[in-house]
Nucleic acid binder design. Sequence first.
DNA 1: CACCGTACTATACACTGTACGTTAGGAGCA
DNA 2: TGCTCCTAACGTACAGTGTATAGTACGGTG
Lengths: 217, 217
Amino acid sequence: MGHMARTPRNTLSADLIVRTALELMEAKGTDAFSLRGVAAELGVGPMALYTYFRNKDDLYDAVRDHLMGLLPDVPPEVAWPDQVRAVCRSLRLLMLQHPCLAQLLASRPLSGHETARVAEGLLGVLRSAGFDAETAARTHTTLFTYVLGATSWEIQMAAERRDPEAWRRLRATMESLSARDFPSVVELAPELARTTGGDEQFDYGLDLLLAGLRTPS
Amino acid sequence: MGHMARTPRNTLSADLIVRTALELMEAKGTDAFSLRGVAAELGVGPMALYTYFRNKDDLYDAVRDHLMGLLPDVPPEVAWPDQVRAVCRSLRLLMLQHPCLAQLLASRPLSGHETARVAEGLLGVLRSAGFDAETAARTHTTLFTYVLGATSWEIQMAAERRDPEAWRRLRATMESLSARDFPSVVELAPELARTTGGDEQFDYGLDLLLAGLRTPS
DNA sequence: CACCGTACTATACACTGTACGTTAGGAGCA
DNA sequence: TGCTCCTAACGTACAGTGTATAGTACGGTG
């Protein structure tokens, strides 16, 4: 072997690209993510990525499915409400650990095997618990959208608090509200700030949902 | 009047820009929206908008607050669970009517007087019903995030169904799942498709939440 | 009338996703 | 060994984005 080939081949792979994309999203924020950034990080031209992905959205889907693959399986040998709790909590934790997942779930349709695996887990729990097909489907959608909404909101508020400019503007808006026109908002401002996010807030809503579910048969 | 002034002044206003931006978002989709598009629609240079808004996000906030202003007040003289239902339903309907609102609520922090007005309505209902400060705040956040998550999902799935390419890919993914590995997903596919969105699905989750709420005192 | 602030324009920059056409490395076969 | 083909990666280019900066002309006020 005389000298290194200038353009080595087969150094890229879909998986390597996905992992690099994920790193960049978490390092620079989902918004600042770009295909050119990924390509540069890999020491490659922007168009090289198109060998593995049809477009940016296609890469987004792959990253989302990759993240969904990190979700643990449903714990067996536990009462079904606790199984439901475990699934919802681990999805929330994964979203908190990888904030980009919130945007990826909210802005793109579900697809991919890992995503289906997660749905399978929750649906299986509900079916085993004795819920009929329609109730299981409705409950699955309800739980999923609750986790999605609650955790997306939690992530956004946390980001808010980290940005001093945004935080200052929020406080300013708050203080511009007269106690006459907005008595409850003004009175409950400390509680609202305190109950934004956190395990207790998430579990509060989750338990509200579970309390409405009655074991069938 | 000799000839028309080439650059008439004071034809713009923050409100006019907001309404034009809203029109464009709904006509061409939230993603295709651009400041240059709004400026062109108004027959004005792109930089003219910066007289009224500090940047694109600032305009987004204004559009969001404008839309929130369309929400009706809480119906008085009704039992509080029905008041809660009314608030949640009208927020969902507004989001369905203006799909961009879903993205505006999910990607930007809350601010603005109209947004505060909506929070005031729901918080007031909960306080009047007798809930203590912390429970009212927690419940408010839970309800808001549920509506946000459920309706965002509903809107996205509806858009999905309208895009034939995306719809084909979803069906393909579905059919690639073996009934051995994904028994519940395969079995419940029709129910999942049928229960995605719609008034019944939304009310199902909302009633689940309300069922967990007990009237205090 | 002169002045000045402000509403708007013009130009420019850095950056995006990606369509198109080209090149070069490796594999299979004569 | 030499030829051919496939394809991974390249380079160039385009239309588009948000917005920083500097300039210009109008309207109201002295």
